[in-house]
Computed example of a mutant assay.
Amino acid sequence: MKRVLSAAVVGASLTVLAGGIAFASGGGGGGTPAGGGGNMPSASSPSYDPSIEYAKAIAALKANNYKDAARAAGHVTDVVPKNPDGWHVLGVATAGANDWKGSRRAYEKMVKLAPDDATAHAGLGLALANLKDKKAQAEDDWLKAKAQACGDSCPDAARLKEFTSTVEAAMNPAAGAPKPSAMLDRSLLFGGAKAGDAAYELAVGLINDRRYDEALAALGKAQATFGPHPDILTYEGYTWRKKGDYARAEAYYQQALAIAPNHIGATEYYGELKVAKGDIAGARVMLAKLDRICAFGCADAEELRRWIDAGGDPQKH
Rank of each mutant, 00 (worst) to 15 (best):
G19I: 06
V285K: 02
E162L: 10
G30R: 07
A266S: 11
R105N: 06
A281M: 04
P230A: 08
S47C: 14
D140C: 04
V285P: 00
T225P: 00
T119R: 15
V10P: 03
I293P: 11
L287T: 04
K194A: 15
G311R: 10
A258P: 01
S25E: 15
E268C: 03
M1V: 04
T166S: 15
A138W: 01
L160S: 09
G205L: 02
P81E: 12
P228W: 10
E162H: 13
G38K: 07
R211D: 11
A8G: 08
V204P: 06
T32H: 11
P50H: 09
C298G: 09
G151R: 09
K161F: 07
W100S: 04
G265D: 09
E303L: 08
P230Q: 13
A288S: 13
A118L: 11
A22E: 05
I308H: 00
E108L: 09
M286W: 02
V10C: 12
A276L: 11
P261F: 11
G31H: 12
P41C: 13
A288P: 00
A122K: 12
A169V: 00
A258L: 10
A258N: 04
K82D: 10
K242S: 01
L126C: 06
K144D: 13
R3W: 01
S25T: 09
G102V: 02
